[in-house]
Computed example of a mutant assay.
Amino acid sequence: MRIGAHVDPADPLAEAASRAADAVQFFLSDPQGWKAPNPREDADRLRAAEVDVYVHAPYVVNVATTNNRIRIPSRKLLLGHATGAAGIGAKGLIVHGGHVNAGDDLATGFDNWRKTFAYAAENGGFGVPVLIENTAGGDNACARRLDALARLWDAVGEYDVGFCLDTCHAHAGGEELLDLVDRVKAVTGRIDLIHANNSKDAFNSGRDRHDNLAGGTIDPELLVAVIRAAGAPVIVETPGGADGQGADIAFLREHLGGTTA
């Protein structure tokens, strides 16, 4: 099991070394902006590295929305980041499940997801696995609860889409972690990546605030059980920089039975 962290994009390999991480995740551009990523000068180093690389799409991406001023730029931006991720040898591009506006039919959001994958296929494909991530909040979300996730997978499953399970998002979104892996796999058939995060907030709070693994409102032993059951690579998106994340990586290695390198 490969274990790593979400890091600053300036020098991801140095950040990996400072955490003794097997993997890194980072943004290719401003996560709150609409700019397409530029080619990276360290692309060759990233492709050749023993460290596994994952890219997170900008938070502004929402391909599910019925607002065409957001939906159409979102799918173009997602494709651009997938191209950038492929260029550095990334193992996946993580993107949040998105939502529709209040009063809109959620079915339209699922269909917009289908159209996003069809759009990509018509333009040469994403070139890197796209991993849809469950989200913590919103009554109009496409991937907060498993009943919505099942409808999303009915819409996009034919495109071999991957899934990223965030433990904080599941807890804050109202999904019990006990037996969660089995319930997710019954919907998606797969878990490609774990975002291992504790939660600062209570169950079903709808709030997305990550905490370190031994802190927060989730029993750390339950987090370990979820990660072990999933058997997927792990990225911690926890606070504390290299020290905090390094401690979380060490915690997981200790409780999961040794090093991962």
Rank of each mutant, 00 (worst) to 15 (best):
D111L: 15
R2S: 03
A141K: 06
D11L: 11
A20T: 12
A229T: 00
G244C: 09
Y54W: 14
L78E: 08
A136N: 08
K185P: 12
L79P: 04
V226A: 00
R45K: 15
A250N: 04
I227Y: 10
I191H: 05
D30F: 09
A155E: 13
E221G: 13
D182R: 15
G157T: 12
A225C: 02
T188G: 10
P9L: 09
E221L: 11
A148S: 10
G103S: 15
I235M: 08
V24E: 10
G241H: 05
R69Y: 13
N197S: 09
M1D: 02
I194N: 00
A202G: 15
Y119E: 00
G138C: 06
N204E: 08
G231S: 11
P12N: 10
G240K: 10
T238L: 04
H171S: 09
K91G: 14
V234W: 06
A170W: 04
V128S: 01
G89F: 04
P239V: 11
L77D: 00
N62L: 04
R75T: 10
V226G: 00
A214W: 01
M1C: 00
H210S: 11
T167Y: 08
A250E: 12
G87E: 15
V187D: 08
G206R: 08
A16C: 02
I249T: 07
R207Q: 12
A43I: 03
E221V: 10
I227S: 01
N140D: 13
N123C: 00
T238D: 01
V61Q: 02
R69G: 12
S74R: 05
D219Y: 09
V234C: 03
E176P: 12
G98M: 13
A118R: 07
A82T: 07
A261R: 13
E237L: 04
D44M: 07
G4K: 03
L177S: 01
E50H: 14
F126K: 11
G206I: 10
P73H: 09
V187N: 05
A14V: 13
W153R: 11
T238C: 04
A229P: 10
G33T: 07
G215Q: 13
R2P: 00
P37Y: 09
T135A: 12
A155Q: 07
G138I: 04
H81R: 07
G33K: 12
P39G: 09
D8C: 13
L13P: 05
H81N: 13
R253N: 03
V226E: 02
T66A: 14
H81V: 02
T108E: 10
D201Q: 14
P9T: 06
D30L: 13
E158A: 14
G231E: 05
A118N: 02
D8G: 15
V128D: 02
H81K: 07
D52K: 14
H210E: 06
A261V: 11
T259K: 14
N62E: 06
I132M: 05
D179L: 11
A247N: 15
G215R: 12
R190L: 02
A136W: 03
R145T: 15
G137S: 15
V184S: 11
A85S: 14
N134A: 05
D104A: 15
G189R: 01
V7Y: 02
A82I: 00
N197C: 07
D179A: 14
T259M: 01
A118W: 00
G231T: 08
R114E: 09
A10M: 05
A148D: 14
L146W: 13
S29P: 03
